[in-house]
């Protein structure tokens, strides 16, 4: 790529080794300013347009709804914060929020915990099976979300596969209804749906960690536990935490799975929002709940981002 030479600070020379190549200035100083930046700005335009159309405008509309007075399937003036006050004072909000937190947290945690060892195995031990298996994992994402939820219903249901097998084995004498219509069933189905996504991300996270890094750690006396603790986990922390938040957001806001696999007390915030917008016609209340969730998710992201930045794990700069 041709570019106008930009002014950079003169490289310093290592005083102990005047013959050595000059020390490079820190990466921050190396980034160039000037005409190149304007071109970068232009290149960012499609992404910016996308964000405005699909993130900024909907969020602004949503936030506008949340501070207007509720009508029936409409919102009108005047501006008010009552929607937020009502939502935060309602016991239902907190109960559903707790369910969202449990289901979202458990789903995200289990998904990441499954994906990491599988991705590790794929990266270092699968050999020629690596790509076929990755393909099968990607293929499993092609099955419809609803089909997979129904599949779990036929597995976990009172007359489902699990009960039949357990009865045939003589472990139980009557069909058990313990497997379905509870949070465990919701989490099982959501983990099933989420794991392939996390696996793709984690596999990509392992890719730059060439075996030689683990060999160097071994050579320096690092046993298996130390290699995980001091090399692998820090190097995959960014993608792992990102996947956790991604799945947490998707799972905790889900309003379909609880309806099919959950019990009466297992609804989550997403279901409530959906009902405010459809059944109750209280758009302002739904928008305020959405606003609260947006803030909560924003906080999660912020905590993760600050944590990664403080530990310096937000940007791993690979050298050859």
């Amino acid at each position: 790529m041709s570019s106008t030479p930009a002014p950079v600070q003169p490289p310093s020379v290592d005083p102990m080794y005047p013959g050595a190549p000059p020390d490079l200035p820190p990466a921050e100083a190396r980034s160039t300013r000037g005409p190149k930046n304007r071109r970068n700005l232009l290149a960012a335009a499609p992404a910016a347009a996308y964000l405005v159309a699909f993130l900024v405008i909907p969020v602004v509309v949503l936030l506008a709804y949340s501070v207007l007075t509720a009508g029936f399937f409409t919102v009108t003036g005047p501006l008010t914060f009552d929607n937020y006050k009502d939502a935060l004072q309602s016991n239902l909000t907190w109960e559903l929020g707790r369910n969202s937190l449990i289901v979202g947290g458990a789903t995200a945690l289990i998904s990441v915990a499954i994906a990491i060892p599988v991705a590790y195995w794929l990266r270092y031990h699968a050999g020629r099976w690596q790509m076929p298996i990755m393909f099968l994992i990607a293929l499993s994402m092609f099955a419809s979300y609803l089909v997979r939820i129904y599949a779990w219903r036929t597995i976990l249901g009172t007359h489902g596969v699990l009960n039949t097998v357990l009865m045939d084995l003589g472990i139980i004498s009557h069909p058990s209804s313990l497997f379905i219509f509870n949070q465990t069933a919701i989490v099982i189905a959501m983990v099933h749906i989420s794991v392939p996504y996390v696996m793709l991300v984690m596999f990509a996270a392992f890719r730059p960690i060439e075996p030689r890094y683990l060999e160097a750690a071994r050579d320096l006396g690092g046993g298996s536990l130390q290699r995980w603790r001091r090399v692998i986990l820090p190097l995959i922390a960014g993608p792992a935490i990102s996947s956790f938040i991604f799945i947490f957001v998707l799972a905790s806001a889900d309003f379909v799975t609880p309806q099919f696999l959950g019990g009466p007390g297992d609804a989550m915030l997403g279901l409530n929002i959906s009902q405010e917008f459809t059944a109750s016609g209280n758009w302002a209340a739904g928008a305020a709940l959405s606003g609260i969730m947006l803030v909560a998710y924003g906080l999660c992201f912020l905590i993760a981002a600050v944590g990664l930045r403080l530990t310096g794990l937000n940007k791993i700069r690979w050298t050859t």
Binding site: E215, A216, D219, L235, T319
Partner: peptide
């Protein structure tokens, strides 16, 4: 990891983090 033998590899393989 238990040998009193250490290696310098062809590429430096410094831990990037």
């Amino acid at each position: 990891e238990k040998r009193p033998i250490n290696t310098v590899f062809q590429r430096p393989t410094l831990f990037p983090h």
